[in-house]
Design a protein around this nucleic acid. Structure first.
Length: 562
RNA sequence: UGGGGUGUCGUCAAGCGGUAAGACACAGGCCUUUGGAGCCUGCAUUCGGAGGUUCGAAUCCUCCCGCCCCAGCCA
């Protein structure tokens, strides 16, 4: 699929770029990048940024690099690098040979730092972390200059070289930019640009004991890659003066421009990396790819399509307002996409046995059922019918309300793609009183035809021949949290976890043909929802389905149910 | 509190001095062998508030108010 053909959105960033493009500001180039830190899996919020950066590049015939922002080995790993690569590819984007790592630039970055020292614009500071914080001042008071601020260039050069050589303990010294301790931009008060940190790096191993800070590494990495528009989220707006400062000091060529947009929030879930890590590490979910997770891996396993996610990202737009997008919009995009392409099938989640009294025990016939009622291109399949059927337990009521259009005493109902059946009797369990079996009679005239006498049969229910159906496990997923804004509870957000976010149904039945479906294949179980074969747990002999999203259901809504 | 941002329908979001797009949600109706899908209709006399400029303001000016971000050797 061509990502940019999904829709052609317009937003303030594209306006800026269109203008730069028109005025030939970067020699007519458009170069963006998506710069994740490989310390977690990417989620729907990252997907917004991925679509933005890759989408813009494609729109202008430019390039978008994938750059791992791996400047802090703590928490970063190859597992995350690999998952990020897989997830962005799956979303439908490609960076060809332009996969980069900030760690690729460590040597160059070190040289930039030396250059800054030589220019008298950086110094080695030997204050400890607490002291640096104290010296930084506050929102209302300016900071004070470090006593080490005026070390000589020679001493700074020597100390910095020895920092790199591993002569000092972690935290003993840092390299700082010499800017302005009184700046209202706190980030400009002599920011730390290198720290000593003995931690093995997933790519550079033990080669370095000093690592550059984000503010230093990011803008210069952008410049080294000749990025024209460095798009990031709003919280970096305060850092922009520093971004520009480093570039102004060290870069002689075309300067990249940082542009900030509002990060995505989605109702009934959390998107901060810290919180997602907590969900995974504390076992609240089964892993990063738990189908309830808002991660790309989770959504993929859940059965969401890349197209649906891209459409969602196009729908929500790009602006600078803090927003919380209704998760219903995401669900809408998933339904909209799946409605067009998911083949129909019948699945009985909570079976109730129905016996057709006037149908011979030894008889089986086959119905040809369209795989998509509006799209014949998807073909059809044969579905067997016999005397004993399963229907959905919810499709029978002993004492139904008047607007109920399904089966009940004295009622008749259409079996989807098959006969009209009329209620005859039903049995109940002697102990629990639960309905165990319903007896019905078919109207043989109604085999794929309306009743001959012109009477109207309103209800249509799905069914399966008991002798032919395949058993399956079905996992019903619901929103991860029970409140729209779980993050509002701060660290207590886990107390709003939705206890019913996963319901495992064991005794389900599906059409036998699904036994041959490919892992990950998506279907609509008619009248119920969209489901996919779980890629990890499903086996032909033990089918496991994930509910991707339920169908819109105006009946249960009117009944005041979920 | 100093600084940086931002306030348009329940939720996103267009609008860029000429008289409030669209989407989701919601509510009705039509249609229907998925209570699905589809279709139709309704849904901001008003743009955080108050003044002002103008023939005309969501758009320009002034003041006020709310919300978000910044005091990591995280990104």
């Amino acid at each position: 699929m061509d990502p940019i053909s999904d829709t052609a959105p317009s937003d303030f960033i594209r306006d800026i770029i269109a203008d730069d493009f028109k005025t030939n500001r970067h020699e007519g180039r458009v170069a963006t990048r998506f710069p994740p830190e490989p310390n977690g899996y990417i989620h729907i919020g990252h997907a917004k940024s991925v679509c933005l950066n890759f989408g813009i590049a494609a729109q202008y015939g430019g390039t978008c690099n994938l750059r791992m922002d791996d400047t802090d080995p703590a928490g970063e790993s190859l597992e995350f690098v690999e998952s990020i690569i897989q997830d962005i590819h799956w979303l439908g984007f490609d960076w060809q040979d332009r996969l980069f790592f900030a760690s690729d630039y460590f040597e160059q970055l070190y040289a930039f730092a030396v250059e800054l020292i030589r220019a008298g614009k950086a110094y080695v500071c030997s204050l400890d972390a607490d002291e640096i914080r104290e010296y930084r001042g506050s929102f209302t008071e300016p900071g004070r200059e470090s006593p080490y601020r005026n070390r000589s260039v020679e001493e700074n050069l020597d100390l910095f070289a020895r920092m790199r050589a591993g002569e000092f303990a972690d935290g003993e010294h840092v390299l700082r930019a010499k800017i302005d301790m009184a700046s209202p931009f706190i980030v400009m008060r002599d920011p730390v640009i290198y720290r000593i940190k003995r931690a093995p790096h997933h790519r550079t191993g033990e080669a370095w004991v000093i690592y550059p800070m984000y503010d230093f590494a990011h803008c210069l990495s952008d410049a080294l890659e000749r990025i024209t528009h460095s798009i990031c989220t709003l919280e970096f707006e305060n850092n922009r003066p520093l971004y520009d400062w480093f570039v102004d000091q060290l870069i002689s060529w075309d300067h990249p421009r940082q542009i900030e947009f509002a990060r995505l929030n989605v109702s009934y879930t959390v998107l901060s990396k810290r919180r997602l890590i907590e969900l995974v590490e504390n076992g609240h979910v089964s892993g990063w790819d738990d189908p309830r997770m808002p991660t790309v891996a989770g959504m993929r396993r859940r059965g969401y399509t890349p197209e649906a996610i891209r459409n969602f990202c196009a729908e929500i737009g790009v602006a600078k307002n803090d927003t919380v997008v209704d998760i219903a919009l995401l669900e809408h995009c998933v339904r909209q996409d799946l409605n067009d392409r998911a083949p129909r099938t019948m699945g009985v989640l909570k079976p109730l046995k129905v016996v057709i009294d006037n149908y011979p025990e030894d008889r089986t016939e086959t119905f040809t059922c369209p795989n998509h009622p509006q799209n014949p291109v998807l073909g059809s399949r044969e579905v067997p019918f016999s005397r004993v059927l399963y229907i959905e337990r919810d499709d029978f009521m002993e004492d139904p309300p008047k607007k109920y259009k399904r089966l009940g005493p004295g009622r008749e109902v259409r079996l989807r793609n098959a006969y009209v059946i009329r209620y005859a009797s039903h049995n109940r369990d002697a102990v629990g009183g639960e309905v165990t079996e319903v007896h019905c009679a078919i109207d043989p005239e109604t085999r794929n035809a309306p009743p001959a006498d012109g009477r109207k049969v309103e209800g249509v229910i799905h069914w399966l021949s008991a002798a032919h159906a395949a058993p399956a496990e079905v996992r019903l997923y619901d929103r991860l949290f029970s409140v729209p804004d779980p993050a509002a509870a701060g660290d207590d957000f886990v107390k709003f976890l939705n206890a019913d976010s996963l319901e495992v149904l064991k005794g389900c039945f599906v059409e036998a043909g699904l036994t041959e479906a490919a892992p990950g294949a998506r279907f609509q179980f008619e009248r119920t929802g969209y489901f996919c074969l779980d890629e990890k747990d499903s086996r032909p002999e033990r089918l496991v389905f994930n509910r991707i999203v339920a169908l819109r259901d105006s009946w249960s809504k009117g009944q005041g149910k979920a």
